[in-house]
Design a binder for these strands. Sequence first.
DNA 1: ACCTGAACACCGTTCAAGT
DNA 2: ACCTGAACACCGTTCAAGT
Lengths: 226, 226
Amino acid sequence: MSSGTPGRDAPERRPALTRGRIVRAAIGLIEREGADALSMRRVAAELGVAVMSLYNHVPNKGALLEGVAEHVVSGMELQDDPSAPWQERVRALVRAFRTVAHEYPRCMTIVLTRRFDTTVGLRPAERALALAEAAGFDGVTAVRIMRALMAYALGAQMREIGFGKMLHHLDTSPAENFAKLDAATFPHVIALGPELARHDPEADFEFGLDLLVGALEALPRARSAR
Amino acid sequence: MSSGTPGRDAPERRPALTRGRIVRAAIGLIEREGADALSMRRVAAELGVAVMSLYNHVPNKGALLEGVAEHVVSGMELQDDPSAPWQERVRALVRAFRTVAHEYPRCMTIVLTRRFDTTVGLRPAERALALAEAAGFDGVTAVRIMRALMAYALGAQMREIGFGKMLHHLDTSPAENFAKLDAATFPHVIALGPELARHDPEADFEFGLDLLVGALEALPRARSAR
DNA sequence: ACCTGAACACCGTTCAAGT
DNA sequence: ACCTGAACACCGTTCAAGT
């Protein structure tokens, strides 16, 4: 009758309800059923508690979403090789966001939408600023570089998972859908149809990243790179 | 007793209910009160009709949101000067997205989140591909350039309106908040605090755009630019 | 300090009924 | 073809009551 867990005394069946457990349950629910399926009631059911119990650890649903965004962002693994050239370290930083975005694909809309003000969001910013300085850029430029890199990291993901689906009807069955396009207004889209239908998000991502890093290399610097 | 409108016969007080009127009412509501305030019931009330009347023109709320996204994107003004150098035409294209994003700031999360499959979304894609070809790039490269430009356009906006607020607590009262940061883990953020607190989204946007366009100029081309 | 059930004011959407 | 009210199954959150 003994289960795998050390059941002696069995003081409490479930671990204590905490903000962390609530946030993780929410993330699991979102990844399994999508962001629309998230409700306080569903999360409570998942954890086997009454709805109102959640409110002892989270002030409201907005705060829960904030917690989800924070948790995802804090999952960014910002490993760094200080001996590598700054170009490669920049690439690694931007890729780190892409990696976490792939880990929590359905949570991304929340991350991209909800604002939160924990310091976890500052970690990638700090890293980007540090790298820009290592590359020899002055402070003003470093801030702008950080913002451009963040814009690309966010946008590349956004385009890949959501807005890219602007071309949604081209994806499913290209041949049929391209036929419906007006040849006069969309000549290039039609001509490049096969290429547009092909999906290599990795290559697309790296292409844009190369553009940016290359542009940074060409940018005049205050000091020479370390 | 005659009002400004030509009231003779006064055949119907309100214009007919259409998908267009519903979408525009939704957009107005979102811009006035935020995306969370949008509900079928609120839209119906706004238009002075019963909730269920909406369902004669829109299958469900998701489709309404799709309509909102479409309407906003179709508002992109893609004027073009074919005699201008392609670099400037590319800039104008990317700026067009930024402009519409500023026109409907609170609708942007929906545009960036909802997928829709009308051809309006293909207009900027077609333009980007045309410009890339005019610049002398081959088809495969043109598609990748288009995607990189879209990623930046989306991300720059995203960062400015939402995720940028990751640094939210730095914005409000910099001095006080920077003091709370751990000096050992965020040295650059702290050192560049004043610069981070300064807001010139226009300059930030143009900086990143310059990086990308400059990178395109440096990219090897199949043919010389027209 | 934490948990809970009942209640309230909202949702989106189905259905059956009207014109 | 379009509109409508009632009803259903859900929401988030307040409140008062428990331990």
